[in-house]
Design a protein around this nucleic acid. Structure first.
Lengths: 115, 115
DNA sequence: CACTTATATAAGTCAAGACGTATGTCAGCG
DNA sequence: CGCTGACATACGTCTTGACTTATATAAGTG
């Protein structure tokens, strides 16, 4: 399963969003996601497994609990980000050009205002 | 279908990569992708439809040809990029550690407050 | 106009994966 | 130790979506 497939699922995206704020126990995550999506505990557990197996999240035991967090190096997230890079180039020049236009407009207006 | 689902398919990712270099005809794209993935012309056409329908690509007729390009504003690509933003913070190890500390502090405080 | 080329749509098949219920594992506690 | 609480795994079901083949549409070309 590719990184993008992992992120294709809304539950998994939500779990990662929750983890973005820092470590959370499986039970904590399950409760939140259960309320929002109406799915069972095993369903959440399976999603957490996918996140683990694909290097998005890592776990650390704390007694009977499992504390999840975004994987330290988050390789797959980098992978996704890198893939997007090609397109950032495509849209950035346009935005840069737009910025230039705006600046030019400002300059022109300034010039008019203070003759 | 969410933007991430659209990008979940390797053929569609490849098509976008090809389009990142500029406009290309459907036939051109089909030939390349067919060679690489061994799929039929209709299969590629269906993928192109998904890219169109979800705002990743746009088309312009040129006689009997259809010239595809990455959609001018590429809204869904931005969407994906924005979603990743939350995790860019987590990539800087120091900040990630800080987040974890903050979460731990919150947890500790919560535990103290509600004995 | 008949024929070919370029591309899209239709309809059916098949596999992946998301979910639920049931059950297993393991830590902590009396 | 037996019980409970926190998670994980097994397994069967159902849906989605990626293919395929067949066919439609529409633009050149002789």
């Amino acid at each position: 399963m590719h990184a993008f497939d992992v992120l294709g699922d809304p539950v998994r995206r939500r779990l990662l969003e929750l983890l973005a704020d820092g470590e959370r126990s499986a039970g904590d995550l399950t409760e939140t996601v259960r309320a929002e999506f109406g799915i069972s505990q095993p369903a959440v557990s399976q999603h957490l497994r996918v996140l683990r197996d694909h290097g998005f999240a890592s776990v650390r035991p704390d007694g009977a609990r499992r504390l999840y967090s975004v994987d330290a190096d988050a390789r797959p997230l980098h992978e996704v980000d890198d893939w997007l890079q090609a397109f950032r180039r495509a849209w950035t020049p346009r935005l840069a050009a737009l910025d230039t236009e705006i600046a030019r407009g400002r300059r022109a207006r300034r010039t008019e205002e203070t003759p």
